[in-house]
């Protein structure tokens, strides 16, 4: 049921947009190309912002700082039944979506489907979006460099998400 919705969502939206346009006698082809022209400009505009954020994060990941943060928090998290393997996901999921998915795949492949670490990391990765990437792309596209409270809200919400994931998984999978 849910899978069917996912599969049909995109075609349904496209059909709806085109049919409605035809019904209202909009010149579909011309209007489409007129809007599509903007695509290149927007994509190129975000490059400087992406370079700043992605280079910074790539350097941070390469430096081994994430392992260090993991070691600091490991004893605290052990008290809440959080397996040490899932630590990198908590730190990395706001920084890089592909890295978080990579760590998750590692855990799932190494520990197997029945391990609690696999389930917890699945929930953590599935419920998050890469805050820093979204920030760079969305604000970069319109040239915003003063973020005000936007990043703080993103990070706090990510933190709440991690806490919620730990609590919910504890209740659902461990009790």
């Amino acid at each position: 049921m849910m899978q069917t919705i996912s599969l049909w969502a995109l075609p349904a939206i496209i059909l709806l947009i085109l049919t409605m346009g035809l019904f209202k006698k909009i010149p579909l082809y011309e209007t489409f190309t007129e809007g599509a022209k903007e695509g290149f400009k927007v994509s190129v505009n975000i490059i400087p912002y992406l370079v700043a954020i992605i280079v910074g994060i790539s350097m941070f990941r390469a430096s081994g700082a994430i392992d260090f943060i993991g070691q600091v928090f490991a004893p605290l998290l052990a008290k809440f039944n959080v397996p040490a393997d899932t630590l990198p996901i908590m730190i990395v999921r706001s920084l890089s979506g592909s890295a978080a998915l990579g760590v998750f795949s590692d855990i799932a492949n190494n520990l197997g489907p029945d391990d609690y670490a696999t389930k917890l990391s699945a929930v953590m990765v599935g419920s998050s979006e890469t805050t820093f990437y979204v920030l760079a792309v969305y604000f970069g596209a319109v040239g915003i460099s003063k973020l005000r409270y936007a990043l703080l809200v993103g990070i706090l919400a990510d933190f709440i998400g991690i806490v919620a994931a730990i609590l919910v998984c504890n209740l659902v999978f461990l009790s």
Binding site: I14, I17, G21, K24, T31, G35, E38, G39, S43, I46
Partner: peptide, 20 residues
């Protein structure tokens, strides 16, 4: 992003003009 961006910005232009 360029290609998919162009596609959806084109679609959105139609959606906008048709009042959707």
């Amino acid at each position: 992003l360029i290609g998919i961006m162009a596609f959806w910005l084109g679609m959105m232009k139609i959606a906008e003009k048709s009042g959707l």
